[in-house]
Design a protein around this nucleic acid. Sequence first.
RNA 1: CGGGGCGUAGCGCAGACUGGUUAGCGCACCUGCCUUGGGAGCAGGGGGUCGGUGGUUCAAAUCCACUCGCCCCGACCA
Length: 570
Amino acid sequence: MRYSNLFIPTMRETPSGINAISHILMLKAGYVRQLAAGLFIFLPLGWRVLNKINVILKEEMERIGAQEISMPILHPAEIWQQTGRWYSIKEEMFRLKDRTGRDMCLGMTHEEIMTWIAAKEIKSYRQLPQIWYQIQTKLRDEARPRGGVLRTREFIMKDSYSFDADNEGLDRSYQMHAEAYHRIFSRCGLRYYQVESDPGIMGDMESHEFMAPTPAGEDEIVLCDQCGYAANIEVAKSNPPIPPKIDMEFSEVYTPNKKSVKEVSEFLGLDERYFIKSLLVITEKEPVLVLIRGDHEINEKKLARIIGEFSFASPEEAHKILGIEIGFIGPLNHKIRLIADKSISKDILYVSGANKKDYHIKGITPEKDFRPEWHDIRKVSEIDRCIKCNAPIRIEKAIEVGNIFKLGTKYSLPLNAIYLDKDGKEKPIIMGSYGIGPARVAAAAIEQNNDQDGIIWPKSIAPFDIEIIPLNMGDSKTTKIAEELYEKVSEIYNSFADRHMEVLIDDRDERPGVKFKDADLIGIPIQVIIGEKGLKEGKIEIKKRRTKESKKVTINKAVVEIVNSYYETY
RNA sequence: CGGGGCGUAGCGCAGACUGGUUAGCGCACCUGCCUUGGGAGCAGGGGGUCGGUGGUUCAAAUCCACUCGCCCCGACCA
């Protein structure tokens, strides 16, 4: 295509007030514009990239036998009421009424509707298994859109749903999706990990997320390089180092005004690992005293899975419930529910609050001096060791680019998706659901592939394969050679992508500097530079965007050399 | 929803504290000349509800109140 006909509004100056690199570069290089908080317009270049990703998604979905369909995004409330999500989901759902006053909502995801159609049409085991997918808009009234295209209120998602007769079938569908996802993200040029994840309200069965590591990511993942253990920090387990036992006499110590673990630890000259931090939380049912080692933090997701939704007690609430000032609460002599983290060792003596202002107690022995419920409620820390192989672990920030969930009968039961098996017995369809966010894939690709000059697209999802840059449009020899190359290269079959080469020619009457800057910004993998200097020697220049490595080749070999350079790059 | 910040030309900003010419600068844009290997130069030109509403004042971009929008941190994220 011709640059002069394309709408590519690049910006000379860097937009201020935003920090995700992908957000900055998508705006600056003219890929997207923002309409309102969490609403983005994809301009020609951005839309081409999304479509490149969508083609890969379709190919890999079809490869596992998935069938593309398309569902409405406007849904009647009844179906969501039947599964209960109309009530369990709160402000995050866009709701509206039609002219007759009927309750409707905008689809945040499509489990309900997919199950509805399956329930209506699938009657026999002979019709199973099925995998249906779509690339469709979702709407969620996000509390806080952020990171440009990373978390938006309206976004496109590839979502697929599997329908099987039994759990073995579900295992196969799940596994096929996992394999398809590995192929998809590899083909898109991402660095990624498959990690264990919290299924959240999707179900309580197995689920995994596909995570692309980058500092702009919202999630944290725990990784072991030795055995490959990988988990979202929300569910990750680890072995914290246990300190050696120190003898201390069971006694009260005067700790005037020393409230935090840090303060008391410094005051007594004792490592924080020998402290038990006592935190009062309040659930819908009851107050709970949560005990965790002094140097650890609570993983609120893990705790919530045990006691349900909770909030930390305010100093006033704590005083009212326990009669003690915050800072001096300890695990001894309470009548309320006690939950302790497993990393608190029964073989070690600890210090904690004395339940009395300005005093702490030394020499506490867990199980002897207090008897809690033991659970894993600790947030994994980088000094911990791998839960599986005890090797050192890493924690990285990452973007969730995809997820796979086993749903079981969570939706098929309430929506009555029942089939008859070989024996004529009624059974619920066993389901799975699987999502990928193409815009997140694009953003993650930019996060992982950029330099000071701009985007460096993996060639599989670049908006064009080749950019031809005639430096001086006023020079007839330059334009003649450029046009010839444009035509010839466009006719070449691109066996990497299974289509013809997509070539962009910068035919604008701009100065060379402008063209170079824009070319680097928009990040097309191969630049073909045609200038008068080179032409005098009968040569043109081929430059790889990623490495900046360039070579001069004679005009008669140009086409072959351009194509070779394209295949060499990644 | 809590905390912080910002709204002045398409973009980036100054002016505000201490009210007072016609609201300014760089880039972008338009016309002409010139130039063509890393965002050129000269000359001329267009573009503003100073986010909105109300108030104080002889006078408001500037002070006050309310409100809307956006960004960042947190909560949330099916």
